[in-house]
């Protein structure tokens, strides 16, 4: 996760570099440290440093790190020739290195020679079965080939050992959602909430999955998680506000709670959630008024239709 201060720093540096203010190397270092994906910029500015002999020699041994960074960025941008050149230079400098071998395998992957890349990766894994990066590359490769079940299998195997890796859990959750396997996805999102309980995005995704699953209990839980997103974001998350609206006004929710109305406690909870819904609706209206006044009418009709249908 990139924290707020780091993000502002990154944006500031990017702005500065974009406008020709220098500091390209610092920018590249920050990108590498935060592991953000700005491949085009990295390619552009990294190459400009590498092509400038004076600047390049000023880096000392960091030069090779930059070559690696640029090579990966180039693969991401499909400038395979650049990547190839970088890797060739790295190979010359480190003839025995496994790290360069990994880059070569990635180049194969970028070219689309899946079988060869797979062979290279498995030979690496034989040497060191605990190489996280290579496990992840294999999953990515399976996904790129459209072999979703293979990707799931790989991720599950990976998570069996590295079960505290929340990025892998998130990837798995997203894959499950794309396959409409919501129960499994819900489990993954629970795992994510456990490892990062204060990240509202996980709560939101979990609530979405629960809402999609349906059923009274899940709907009620989903409502709670939407509420927690509202709390964690200070009511700034439009999706969560809509979520509350949809959720409380869902016909199923209303119906079943009408049955349960005999119990007094239920009744009270219902009222509360209706109140929460109306509050969310006003917050939404206010937000729309401020940021997209021309769409306000759409919003009010949508909200009205929800109310009518319930």
């Amino acid at each position: 996760m990139v924290s707020k201060t780091e993000e502002t720093q990154l944006n500031r540096l990017e702005n500065q570099v974009d406008n020709g203010g220098g500091g390209a190397w610092e920018y590249l270092c920050l990108v590498r440290k935060l592991k953000v994906r700005r491949s085009e910029k990295v390619l552009k500015y990294g190459l400009s440093i590498l092509n400038d002999l004076k600047k390049r020699s000023g880096l000392g041994s960091e030069e090779w790190t930059l070559y690696e960074q640029v090579a990966i960025a180039a693969m991401d941008c499909q400038s395979l020739d650049v990547a190839k050149d970088c890797i060739r230079l790295l190979r010359k400098a480190f003839p025995e290195s496994k790290r360069v071998g990994r880059l070569e395998a990635m180049l194969l992957e970028a070219k689309g020679s899946w079988a060869e890349a797979e062979k290279a990766y498995s030979s690496f894994l034989e040497e060191n079965p605990l190489d996280q990066v290579i496990h992840k590359r294999r999953v990515a490769m399976a996904k790129a080939q459209g072999n979703i079940s293979g990707a799931i299998e790989g991720l599950n195997k990976y998570l069996e050992i590295f079960m505290a890796d929340h990025d892998a859990w998130r990837e798995l959750a997203e894959i499950y959602v794309s396959l409409q396997m919501y129960k499994q996805a819900a489990f993954c999102y629970e795992e994510l909430i456990l490892s990062q309980p204060t990240v509202p995005l996980h709560h939101l995704a979990y609530a979405d999955v629960l809402y999609t699953l349906g059923g009274l209990e899940n709907l009620q839980t989903a409502k709670k998680y939407y509420a927690s997103v509202i709390d964690l974001t200070g009511g700034k998350n439009t999706r969560a506000l809509f979520g509350i609206n949809l959720n409380v006004l869902t016909p199923a929710f209303q119906c079943t709670s009408a049955i349960g109305q005999l119990a007094k406690g239920r009744n009270k909870e219902d009222k509360e959630s209706l109140e929460l819904q109306s509050l969310a609706a006003t917050a939404l209206e206010k937000d729309y008024k401020q940021r997209a006044p021309e769409k306000l009418s759409l919003l009010s009709t949508a909200l009205k239709s929800l109310k009518v249908s319930s």
Binding site: K224, S228, I230, E272, L276, A283
Partner: peptide
């Protein structure tokens, strides 16, 4: 902890409104 969040969310939204 989630049931408590509903009240807190309500408070937040009230503040916002």
């Amino acid at each position: 902890a989630l049931p408590k969040f509903e009240h807190r969310a309500e408070a937040v939204l009230r503040e916002l409104a």
